[in-house]
Design a protein around this nucleic acid. Structure first.
Lengths: 232, 232
DNA sequence: CGATTTTTAGAGTAATTACTCTAGGAGTCA
DNA sequence: TGACTCCTAGAGTAATTACTCTAAAAATCG
């Protein structure tokens, strides 16, 4: 059995993601893993400390993901970046959901977060440049910066966006995966115009792989498409 | 003097945007416009009703904005859409900030919101198609759908994203405008690859107009760019 | 084993806050 | 003027919830 301290984090993360940090009390967390509230406060001095620890964990994951390897990058590398980042952001989706509030409350977190975003975008730029050097992408530095910011914001917001439309989905692992894959599809759309070479050759296949026909997109555009169809 | 009911909404909106709905009590709102808590509850039966009313207002704004006019669209029309939508979303930024929570709490709101997003994207698609008919954009329907969803998510998330990085900005009207303009710049980046004809001719000018040199972007990439520069 | 430290339990508290209730002012219409 | 409705005040309440405190169990170590 892992130690209580990390078990608290795991339970809290699950509950936060499912119900939102605001709706999860410290008593819920304690109850959730069968310990007393007092015990919980022995390990974390307050609720904010739990959030901060989860934030730390998340930051490390992203940082690790965004390291640039030595040699030239392949289009498979690129896909791995997307999947990894969106996956991490998905796992910590409660964070982005209530990020504004956390930053509002905690000055230290605010500073850390700013540095974190800066660092991440910096690393992202290096990766994109490396992809450009490999001939997989064609874009000016300015275009890369714009693309990068959009990718970041999209990835960070996607969990919240889909969860808003499918609020009952949480807990349904299968549907969760589907929505996540749809997010990767949207990121692919984002950079599709800049792809070249092998990356371009595989674009259609990648789109195919990550577009999930029967969920978000169809759901979103159901009204628009269904009406003319029914008329026929 | 406008009636109390709308003054409550205006005050609540301001406070919500500045501090987040979670941190604004009904007493704060009452105090904010110099009425008693009892009076506030005479006009709105609870806090959620205030949020719902603000949501209603916001929905109407967006719906009005996203109507497709008769004739062919110009690239100026397109810019007006962007500015209008981002402006509306900016004004109601507290909504998107805490959207997940509101949807979690209120089933009716959940249903309304889903329909609202569907309707908005449907309207957006019609607009994009109209722009394509005018020869200002070249893209398949599938590409348009992907672009549209990305635009929507970006516009909805941008206020929260920038506010997270500049939490002290709220209230500073000038900085607010700057961040908002930067959001429009990001949206321009999003669709830049699909522009044709006149829209393409004006792309650089538009980028120039909305890129604000000394804030977000530079801030975000300061670390990446400044280091090599200093070394020289 | 005995001593000391770490971990746990769980009852309890203080503060916050959404909301209620009663009573009174202010307009309106006969 | 009087009756009636709309609007407002503000003290008060009930419920929630983050957090505390004491004491006991469990682990560690000499």
């Amino acid at each position: 059995m892992t130690d209580t301290k990390t078990r608290i984090l795991d339970t809290a993360l699950n509950l936060f993601n499912r119900s939102g940090e605001r709706n999860v009390t410290t008593n819920h967390i304690a109850e959730g893993l069968g310990i007393s509230p007092g015990n919980l406060y022995y390990h974390y001095r307050n609720k904010a400390a739990i959030v901060a620890a989860l934030f730390e964990r998340y930051q490390e994951q992203i940082r690790d993901l965004l390291t640039v390897p030595e040699g030239p990058l392949t289009w498979q590398d690129k896909m791995r970046y997307f999947e990894g980042i969106l996956e991490s952001m998905w796992q910590a989706r409660f964070l982005h959901r209530d990020l504004a509030h956390f930053l509002h409350q905690d000055a230290a977190l605010r500073r850390d977060y700013k540095l974190f975003v800066q660092d991440s975008l910096e690393r992202g730029l290096l990766i994109y440049r490396s992809l450009r050097d490999s001939g997989l992408i064609e874009a000016s530095d300015e275009e890369l910066r714009g693309l990068l910011v959009n990718t970041w914001v999209l990835a960070a917001s996607w969990p919240g966006f889909t969860h808003g439309l499918n609020p009952d989905a949480s807990g349904d692992e299968a549907l969760d995966r589907t929505l996540l894959r749809q997010g990767i599809y949207q990121i692919i759309c984002l950079e599709a115009p800049y792809l070249r070479g092998e990356a371009l050759d595989h674009l259609d296949a990648m789109k195919q792989e990550f577009r999930t026909g029967d969920t978000t997109m169809d759901l979103l555009f159901a009204a628009a498409e269904a009406l003319p169809a029914r008329r026929a």
